[in-house]
């Protein structure tokens, strides 16, 4: 085989590296994720659910502003905000990542079958059309309403509705490449189907999936915040960014207590902005038209 010296991945990575802004966000997210994983094991960390009581008065240490003892302050019932924020971030990110992985996995499988197996094409297309018309948000609300609140419910509802888009995107790519000449030529020469998929379709497909995943994560977190707002989110015993923002919302009018809203809001914004920036930069970098 001729070696043209052009490797799709090398070009993509090189193009991505050129974008300083997205590199910054990527580094930020990397540090972030490592931090929230090791945070509970660091010294002097408090539990997110324990209610702290003042030793002398016996009263709950409620609504204390950020200070030396509680770095992010305490909330209205005396829990440590620092621990809650990071616990909440862990939960929200966990949900987001699982949903993104699932969407990609199922979307990929169904999309490939849909695009490559001609016999099933019409059936799946009709099913797609019907399901696609259902507004995702409404179904989320409905499912969350009828199921018991919890992390699994959250993940379930978002996974059930989320794979559709990925499947369609994958299917479109597969169809276009399936019908391209070099595949027909390959097939005539006797190359088995799986090798066609591996060599020709996979690289582009993978970059599209990575892109979708980077954008799915903030979307999932967004849905979680939305559902929590309506009252269909996680129970209060499981801190999540949605919960924390909702709790803090009531205090926006009181300047001294505003931190309870602002801190989770900031954390959430940093996460979503980072993923969005990374996703967009990756989209540009992986577009073959941008490779010299």
């Amino acid at each position: 085989m001729m070696n043209s010296g052009y490797s799709y991945w090398n070009s993509t990575i090189r193009a991505f590296m050129k974008n300083k802004v997205s590199l910054f966000f990527m580094a930020l997210m990397a540090v972030f994720i490592v931090f929230i994983i090791i945070q509970p094991y660091l010294p002097n960390q408090k539990s997110p659910n324990v209610i702290y009581v003042d030793d002398t008065t016996g009263l709950q240490l409620i609504n204390m502003p950020p200070g030396r003892e509680f770095w992010f302050g305490t909330n209205s019932i005396g829990q440590d905000m620092w621990a809650r924020i990071w616990s909440g971030t862990r939960t929200s990110l966990f949900i987001g990542i699982i949903v993104a992985l699932w969407e990609n996995a199922i979307g990929l499988i169904i999309g490939v079958i849909w695009g490559y197996v001609r016999r099933l094409e019409n059936i799946i297309t009709s099913i797609y059309n019907v399901i696609n018309n259902l507004p995702r948000v409404i179904i989320l609300i409905l499912l969350a309403y009828t199921m018991k609140p919890g992390v699994l419910t959250m993940i379930f509802t978002m996974c059930i509705t989320g794979w559709l888009d990925t499947a369609r995107i994958v299917r479109n790519i597969v169809v276009i490449i399936r019908d391209r000449e070099y595949n027909i030529a390959s097939r005539i020469l006797g190359t088995p189907a799986y090798r066609i998929i591996y060599r020709n379709i996979l690289p582009y497909l993978v970059s599209v999936l990575v892109l979708k995943a980077t954008l799915s994560i903030p979307a999932a977190i967004g849905y979680e915040v939305f559902l929590t707002y309506i009252g269909l989110g996680l129970p209060l015993s499981i801190p999540s960014l949605g919960n924390l923002i909702n709790e803090g919302r009531g205090y926006i009018t009181v300047p001294s207590l505003r931190y309870q809203l602002m801190i989770p809001a900031m954390v959430l914004s940093i996460i979503t902005v980072s993923f969005y920036a990374i996703g967009n930069a990756f989209a540009d970098a992986s577009d073959p038209r941008n490779h010299f």
């Binding site: 707002y229 919302r249 926006i252 920036a277």
Partner: peptide, 18 residues
């Protein structure tokens, strides 16, 4: 466009209102 798309609506709605 970048800001509006990346910051969750929930947050900027609240911030704007306040």
């Amino acid at each position: 466009i970048i800001l509006i798309n990346s910051i969750p609506a929930a947050i900027y709605y609240i911030l704007i209102q306040f």
